[in-house]
C-alpha cells in the first residue's frame, strides 16, 4: 500500500505559540485514520495543514506523493501560487465541525456548486450526481431546503455530500459530530462508516471513541503538539501504554 499522506517533522506556530512540535506519521491509501486528543493538542491544526488551510513552518508534508503548498526543485522550495494550491485541494474533501454550508444556497445547490464552478462540469451531469449523493446520505427529500431549515445532523450530511461531489481521493473530518445533539450523531457516523466501507481514505479528528474503535484502522493520540501514542484503535483504546493516554481515556471513555 502507498502512503496517501506522509508527515515528516511537521511544525506549526501561531506567533510565539508552537502548536505542532514535529509530527511524523503516515496514512495509507484506503485507511481510516483517527486523531484523538484533548482540545489544544493540535489535531485540528494538523488536519488543516494537510489541505494547506494553514502553512507549516518546518518539516515536510506530502499528499499522494506530492508536497503540500510547495514545489521542490533541486534543494530549493518554491511556494505554490494560489491557483496551484486550489488545484490540489480539489482532490481533498473537508468536513468542518461547524458544517460551513453556504446558507444562501439550497442543499442540492451546495452540493453542485464546486463541480460546476471549479471543474466546469455540465449542470445536468452534476445534478444527477448530487441527487445520488444526497440520496446516499439519506436526504434526497431535503434537496430543495436551505441549510437553516435543516437540523445539525442533516446539515453535516449535506456537507459530506458536498465534499464527495468533487470525487476526492482523501477526506478530512474535523470533529464532524462535536457540534451535534447526541441523538443526531449516529446518522452522521453511519454515513462515514459507509464511506469507510467503500474504501475512502479518511482522516478523522474525533471524540467518538466508539467510532474510532469500530471503523478506524489506525489511531493516534496527540497532546501538546506531539504524537504521544499510535497503533491499532483497539490496542490504544483498551491497553494504552502512556500515562497521558491513560488519563485522557479514563476521562472520555
Amino acid at each position: 500500500m502507498t502512503a496517501m499522506v506522509k508527515s515528516e517533522g511537521v511544525h506549526k506556530s501561531f506567533g510565539a505559540t508552537e502548536v505542532l512540535k514535529g509530527i511524523d506519521l503516515e496514512v495509507a491509501e484506503g485507511e481510516v485514520f483517527c486523531l484523538i486528543g484533548p482540545s489544544g493538542s493540535g489535531k485540528s491544526t494538523f488536519l488543516r495543514c494537510i489541505n494547506h488551510l494553514e502553512k507549516i513552518n518546518a518539516g515536510r508534508l506530502y499528499v499522494d506523493g506530492e508536497l503540500v503548498g510547495y514545489r521542490q526543485k533541486g534543494d530549493k522550495l518554491y511556494e505554490l501560487k494560489d491557483s496551484e494550491v486550489a488545484l490540489k485541494r480539489r482532490d481533498i474533501g473537508m468536513v468542518f465541525q461547524r458544517f460551513n454550508l453556504f446558507p444562501h444556497m439550497t442543499a442540492i445547490e451546495n452540493v453542485m456548486e464546486a463541480p460546476i464552478q471549479v471543474r466546469g462540469e455540465s449542470k445536468a451531469v452534476v445534478r444527477e450526481r448530487a441527487e445520488r449523493l444526497l440520496d446516499r446520505v439519506g436526504l434526497a427529500d431535503k434537496a430543495r431546503n436551505y441549510p437553516s431549515q435543516l437540523s445539525g445532523g442533516q446539515q453535516q450530511r449535506v456537507a459530506i455530500a458536498r465534499a464527495l461531489a468533487m470525487e476526492p481521493k482523501l477526506m478530512l473530518f474535523d470533529e464532524p459530530t462535536s457540534a451535534l445533539d447526541p441523538e443526531l450523531v449516529g446518522d452522521v457516523l453511519d454515513v462515514m462508516r459507509g464511506l469507510a466501507e467503500d474504501g475512502m481514505t479518511m482522516i478523522v479528528v474525533t471524540h467518538e471513541m466508539g467510532f474510532a474503535r469500530e471503523v478506524g484502522d489506525s489511531l493516534v493520540f496527540m497532546d501538546g503538539g506531539v504524537v504521544v501514542e499510535s497503533g491499532h484503535p483497539r490496542d490504544v483504546l483498551t491497553n494504552p501504554q502512556h500515562d497521558r493516554t491513560k488519563s485522557f481515556l479514563s476521562k472520555v471513555l
Binding site: L87, R89, R90, I92, F96, N100, E113, A114, A163
Partner: peptide, 15 residues
C-alpha cells in the same frame, strides 16, 4: 468558515 469551506473545495479567491 464560508471562505474556508469554499477554498477547501478548490474554489479560487475570486470565485
Amino acid at each position: 468558515g464560508q471562505t474556508e469551506a469554499s477554498h477547501a473545495l478548490g474554489m479560487s479567491h475570486s470565485k
